[in-house]
């Protein structure tokens, strides 16, 4: 019992650090004026989210998060930001206009909707979480699910990735060729 409660305290401390890092870096992404700093803050956000996933026994998803997001996707973001060049923009350009007020109101409405729906629909079951096997969330478990129950989702995901890759190539090739094709531009 003592060991269990000590583990509880440790998990709580890790959770508090990760959750506040996650929320703080999320706010930082939205409020930094330079996209470069926003991208760096998003890397911190993804890393602290991976810690939260680990606390939820989702080891494989946490590893995929760090590899795919913080590795591949963010490197691509940083390349494009470096290619385009630093362009700063203040989030509150020209004072809080009607657009900014509307954006804050819409985001607040979304937050209220999420809280109300979750507390209405799921509050009964949230207090007690199921006990899971030690294999829950391991790569073998995820792989077995992907190749048995969720095979269709797996195949559709591969098609989506292929379409996105072809789309990226077409977008890049088209914009490189277009000045000769459209001389009047």
């Amino acid at each position: 019992m003592l060991v269990a409660s000590a583990g509880n305290v440790v998990v709580w401390m890790v959770w508090i650090v990760a959750a506040f890092a996650c929320l703080g870096s999320g706010v930082a992404v939205v409020s930094f004026s330079s996209p470069f700093y926003s991208a760096l803050a998003l890397i911190g956000n993804l890393g602290s989210l991976a810690v939260l996933y680990l606390l939820l026994n989702a080891e494989f998803v946490a590893a995929a998060q760090v590899l795919v997001y913080a590795g591949a996707v963010m490197v691509m973001f940083l390349f494009v930001i470096a290619y385009i060049g630093p362009r700063s923009e203040s989030p509150w350009m020209g004072g809080p206009g009607w657009q900014a007020v509307g954006a804050v109101l819409a985001a607040g409405a979304l937050l209220v909707e999420i809280v109300v729906v979750i507390s209405l629909k799921a509050s009964g079951q949230l207090a007690h979480s199921e006990h899971v096997d030690a294999t829950f969330g391991t790569p073998a478990y995820i792989g077995r699910l992907f190749l048995t129950d969720h095979l269709l989702a797996f195949e559709i995901t591969s098609i989506v990735l292929l379409v996105a890759a072809v789309g990226g190539v077409i977008l890049g090739a088209h914009s490189r060729r277009s000045p000769e094709e459209v001389p009047s531009l």
Binding site: V14, C22, V115
Partner: peptide, 22 residues
Amino acid sequence: MIALLGPEISWYLAVAGFLFAT
């Protein structure tokens, strides 16, 4: 069998909702 240590799921969901709104 592993029990869930630390905060309940509702705390995680609160973080998720706040992230979505942000």
